[in-house]
């Protein structure tokens, strides 16, 4: 079974977020980056579990510059067999989807895994676009997945319950919490990762259909107000008049 796991690089969850160039670009100075947790914890780990169960291979795919190699290496350290990096700035969801589709077409993968979204832009767009470009079935927000032969049984959380789907390979899947448990790379895996193949390919032609005009920060949190525990009337007044929650 040939499995492709698409991973993106996102700011570390505690990073201070700021914008530059008239608030149209993300300011990366002083920011540490990690592999998008949805890609790592759920998509990659489930792919590795399936490989361990059924045999085959797991390839990591990333669209980004050489500075992304550290993130890719982590995926290799966790257990992927090899990696491909499309040497280009990931300008937009469509641009990235087109790059993934080009690689996927050539590789003939049985399942293409992505996280349900990236924790920075939260678009949940790339997986659906990739499926469309490849003309493959797409299952989003999957929380459980098993494969028997060429048929996969997949669970999705839906409002108030669970939906169970069956789909034949090849298909595209976006993975959500519940799909797998985070794996922490061990030292031997980290050392082996340095010697695993990382192929760099050039990007295919792809137009962007959107450009970012501006980013705006959410309003900052208001200051904490301490209320004397003996003064419940004041608490009720504030909740009623200021917070308007009661």
């Amino acid at each position: 079974m040939k499995l492709l796991v698409c991973v993106s690089k996102t700011p570390e969850t505690t990073a201070k977020i700021a914008f530059t160039n008239n608030d149209s670009e993300f300011d990366t100075s002083g920011v540490q980056f990690i592999m998008n947790p949805y890609d790592e914890w759920y998509a990659l780990v489930r792919a590795l579990e399936l490989k361990e169960q059924l045999g085959g291979s797991v390839t990591i795919l990333n669209v980004g510059p050489a500075s992304n190699d550290a993130v890719i290496r982590k995926g290799l350290a966790i257990g992927a067999d090899d990696a491909i990096r499309v040497n280009a700035e990931p300008k937009s969801s469509l641009y990235v989807a087109k790059q993934i589709a080009a690689v996927a077409k050539e590789g003939g993968y049985d399942v293409i895994f992505l996280g349900k979204e990236s924790i920075d832009y939260n678009g949940s767009e790339v997986s659906a676009m990739t499926a469309e470009l490849l003309d493959m079935p797409f299952i989003s927000y999957a929380t459980k997945m098993d494969i028997d032969g060429s048929t996969a049984t997949i669970e999705r959380e839906i409002e108030g319950g669970t939906e169970v789907l069956e789909v034949d390979t090849p298909f595209v899947l976006s993975a959500a919490k519940g799909m797998a448990e985070q794996r922490i790379p061990n030292m031997r895996g980290i050392m082996m990762a340095k010697r695993k193949p990382l192929k760099v390919v050039e990007a295919v032609e792809a137009n962007d259909l959107t450009t970012v005009a501006t980013y705006t920060m959410p309003p900052s949190k208001t200051e904490v107000k301490m209320i004397d525990p003996e003064n419940m009337d004041e608490l009720v007044r504030l909740l009623h008049e200021e917070s308007k929650v009661i």
Binding site: D69, R73, K74, A77, I184, M191, K194
Partner: peptide, 21 residues
């Protein structure tokens, strides 16, 4: 020589992840 900065960084992050959890 089997180590480099990336492998050190992954190790530190992995240990931090384990410790957090």
């Amino acid at each position: 020589q089997d180590y480099d900065r990336t492998s050190f960084d992954i190790m530190l992050d992995a240990v931090k992840d384990f410790s957090d959890k």
